[in-house]
Amino acid sequence: MQERKGVVAMKGNPLTLVGPELKVGDKAPDFAVVDTAMAPKSLKDYAGKIKVLSVTPSLDTPVCDLQATWFNEDAAELGDVYVLNVSMDLPFALKRYCAAKGFDKVATLSDHREASFGTAYGVLIKELRLLARAVFVVDRDDVIRYVEVVPEATDSIDYDKLLEAVKALA
């Protein structure tokens, strides 16, 4: 498996990402994750839809919470778009988190079993077995139209650029 060193850092400490560097125009790879009910989910479950893949290290941290909350509150503004938040959090923790927050617009998915999403999208942090903060916008034909892998894991994604990319597809 390909490893890329120094692409991301945590509090300034360089880390290693496992998997390929995906670019705009690449075909979105499939993945195997589970939802909060432990049901298997993959890219195919969202076929024919615009997808925003919001990737967070853990929803139990302030920046990840902010990212997921932003998507849940602003998902209606995105139009006919599926927002999927993928993390290594356990499905039970995700279910508890969503219930406490009243989330109903973001599908929270766990990559904890196989790290299938992390390795397919090149965002698995080898040293931590967490996912790097990132966002991918995938069109109806499963082609990647926007990629942002945040260099410092404790920083936020660029919400303005993301909105611009999604609106260009709607």
Score class of each variant (00 low, 15 high):
S42T: 15
L94F: 11
P14T: 12
L53Y: 08
D139W: 11
L131I: 14
K5M: 13
V147D: 05
T154D: 00
E164Y: 15
R140A: 15
A153I: 11
T16I: 07
F117S: 03
F103S: 00
L43P: 02
S156E: 14
S58K: 08
G118Y: 11
D80H: 11
T69K: 06
A37H: 12
D35A: 00
V63W: 06
E21A: 06
E164C: 13
A168R: 12
T119P: 00
A32K: 10
N72D: 15
V150Q: 01
K95Y: 07
V55M: 03
V147H: 07
K95V: 02
P91M: 03
D111W: 12
A47K: 15
A168G: 13
T61G: 04
L124S: 09
R145K: 14
N13G: 00
S58H: 09
L162Y: 07
G102I: 04
G79N: 11
L66W: 09
T69A: 09
S116T: 14
T61V: 08
K101G: 04
G12S: 02
V147N: 04
D65P: 05
N13P: 00
D160I: 14
A28V: 02
V86P: 02
D74S: 13
V33Y: 02
V55C: 03
V33L: 12
G79Y: 14
A32Q: 09
P62Q: 06
D26V: 06
V149L: 09
C64S: 09
Y121K: 09
T61Q: 08
K105S: 10
L78T: 11
L66G: 00
A134F: 13
G6D: 10
K41T: 07
A28R: 00
Y97F: 15
L17N: 00
A107L: 14
G48D: 04
S87M: 06
V33D: 01
G48I: 05
P40M: 02
D65C: 11
S87Y: 10
E3I: 06
P29E: 01
P57R: 08
D35R: 02
L94M: 15
A32G: 01
A47S: 15
V149T: 08
A76T: 07
E164W: 15
A170H: 08
